[in-house]
């Protein structure tokens, strides 16, 4: 008899907890998707911003009574002599026209004074002084202007900030819903076991003992549902990454890149996803304990 494990003071089979397991699993699944999206957004914006800051552009506009080819050559010579510039290349009139095609169409572009574009590679570690470079370019060619892509970078940063805030908001909403659901489930468990709780009180159990006994149910429920949610999310990312759906090509490569990006930590995503059941369980435990102790205080 001494070796036998005593039965749980709160019965295992509580219908409300079964419902909670399913709903919590969905919440954890959504939280994993939101975390995955958050990581992807941040990585994509980092990549775009890095690409933009590696390059600047110089535009040379045609000015009456000036030879644009000579201006372009002079600008390229100046750029190549500028410290911090690692390369300068005229993309050519054809390529410049191609850039305008989406807005103006291909007809009649020959007649337009299309500016010449010079792609300038910069040393990110020691970038040139852009203000003095812009002034020097004006000296060499009055039609030359420097575009550091600062406006695009700012736009990207703003967009990334908005998307990140949106993901965080989604995570907060999921957490809020989970808290509300745990409170509801705690009340349901306590109501369903009211007779048991009364007997426990009358044989001298303290509120903390009863709360601990009920909390154990929530520990198991939290871990189960969290694990299930993560598994479902991993399965979703795997299917998206390998399904080979042509209409979801971007989604597929994004799902694949979530788990392997050269140079990024391999553990970041798994650790972030694994934090979901841990945080979910902690949330369930703390919420149910606070709710229980509050409710138990109202009993005789």
């Amino acid at each position: 008899m001494a070796d036998r494990k005593p039965g749980p003071v709160i019965p295992r089979e509580a219908a409300s907890l079964r419902t909670m397991t399913a709903t919590m699993a969905v919440m954890c699944y959504l939280a994993c998707l939101a975390i995955g999206a958050l990581i992807l957004i941040n990585r994509a914006v980092d990549n775009w911003a890095r690409g933009l800051s590696q390059e600047v552009t110089v535009q040379v506009r045609e000015i009456e009574a000036r030879d644009i080819d000579a201006d372009v050559s002079a600008v390229i010579s100046l750029l190549k002599e500028t410290p911090g510039v690692t390369g300068a290349e005229d993309i050519g009139r054809e390529a410049a026209e191609k850039l305008l095609e989406p807005w103006l169409g291909s007809e009649g572009l020959d007649a337009l004074p299309v500016p010449r574009i010079i792609r300038v590679a910069v040393d990110q570690a020691r970038p040139p002084d852009f203000e003095s470079l812009a002034a020097d370019l004006k000296q060499v060619s009055p039609g030359a202007s420097l575009d550091t892509h600062r406006r695009w970078e700012d736009e990207l940063t703003r967009m990334a900030g908005t998307l990140t805030a949106l993901s965080v908001l989604i995570l907060l909403l999921i957490s809020g819903s989970a808290v509300a659901m745990v409170i509801f489930a705690t009340r349901a468990v306590l109501d369903a076991n009211r007779q048991t709780v009364d007997v426990l009180h009358l044989v001298g159990a303290e509120d903390a003992y009863i709360a601990r006994a009920i909390n154990r149910r929530f520990l198991a429920t939290g871990l189960w549902s969290g694990g299930l949610g993560v598994l479902l999310a991993l399965l979703t990312f795997f299917i998206l990454g390998n399904a080979g759906l042509p209409q979801a090509d971007g989604l597929a490569s994004a799902s694949r890149s979530l788990f392997y990006v050269p140079g990024a930590s391999v553990w970041l995503v798994p650790l972030a996803l694994l934090s979901v059941p841990v945080v979910g369980t902690m949330l369930a435990l703390v919420t149910s304990r606070i709710t229980l102790l509050r409710m138990l205080r109202t009993l005789p």
Binding site: P6, G7, V203, G204
Partner: peptide, 19 residues
């Protein structure tokens, strides 16, 4: 007021368990 989900043994032991 015995607890139906516990054996007779566990029901009787309950006051000692809560201590």
């Amino acid at each position: 007021r015995l607890l139906d989900h516990l054996t007779t043994f566990d029901n009787v032991a309950l006051p000692l368990r809560v201590q």
